[in-house]
Design a protein around this nucleic acid. Structure first.
Lengths: 128, 128
DNA sequence: CACTAAGTTTACGTTTACGTAAACGTAATA
DNA sequence: TATTACGTTTACGTAAACGTAAACTTAGTG
């Protein structure tokens, strides 16, 4: 477990290009330290990148992923802020649960499709 | 349950614009009947549109959604085709299961975030 | 029959999420 | 010391997924 990574290490570890990582920084999603000119990424940066990429796989925009990352971060100390955050968390959670329902539906449909397919294949075999 | 719909009905039912629906047709994802110049959408078209939009929510491109739709369709009769389809189905299903694992992870993280948040709020209250 | 509402095609515009290339710095290696 | 590898900034390019506008047809309504 290293505690700092170059941009290239991060890129190859996550299967993205360095351009992508710098782009996320431009958008304010990452803020690596600098060693002179060079960027140095911490374990926390890795985690953020992981969250961004996971968000993408669920069709979240980068801005949405940024929001989610903020939720996981340190909650701050303002009471109003905390309550707002709690609401956002609950909204997102409801969204995610709905997604899970949809996902399960898709999986069931896949099972159906497979059965149809297998049946058709079996019929072909018996006819031959 | 009607058996045909205008483009506007479909649009408002699914919360998309007519432009979007025509765009999907351009890409070959929908192929409504024509009543003269006008498009007429069947229940099957509705289903396809539903699948497309659901795919979008999971970060699938339109082309990927097109593939999935084909899987649900009638399997064809060629044996080679059927086997290819079976493989594709299994690949997609593995993908979906991985997504579900990720989704569950996100939900757990949301729970954590909520607890952290609630704790911080509680501390604020006791101090006050 | 004029008008309106809904639909059509065609075409250019826009946003997001990067790709690609130029032009340059720095550090290790042959 | 020249080359190679890796990094940097700046800037323009691009594909996907629509938005928006223009100019037109067609069907129903007062």
């Amino acid at each position: 477990m290293k505690n700092s990574y170059t941009i290239r290490e991060l890129a190859s570890d996550f299967g993205v290009t360095t351009r992508t990582i710098r782009f996320y920084e431009e958008k304010g999603l990452l803020r690596p330290q600098r060693h002179g000119q060079h960027r140095l990424y911490s374990a926390a940066d890795r985690t953020k990148l992981r969250l961004i990429l996971r968000g993408k796989r669920f069709g979240f925009s980068l801005d949405e992923s940024a929001e989610i990352i903020l939720m996981y971060g340190s909650p701050g100390n303002n009471r109003k802020q905390l309550q707002t955050l709690l609401e956002k968390i609950n909204i997102k959670r409801r969204e995610l649960k709905e997604r899970r329902r949809e996902l399960n539906a898709m999986l069931r449909e896949m099972d159906q499709a497979e059965k149809k397919c297998a049946t058709a294949l079996a019929e072909l075999e018996t006819k031959a």
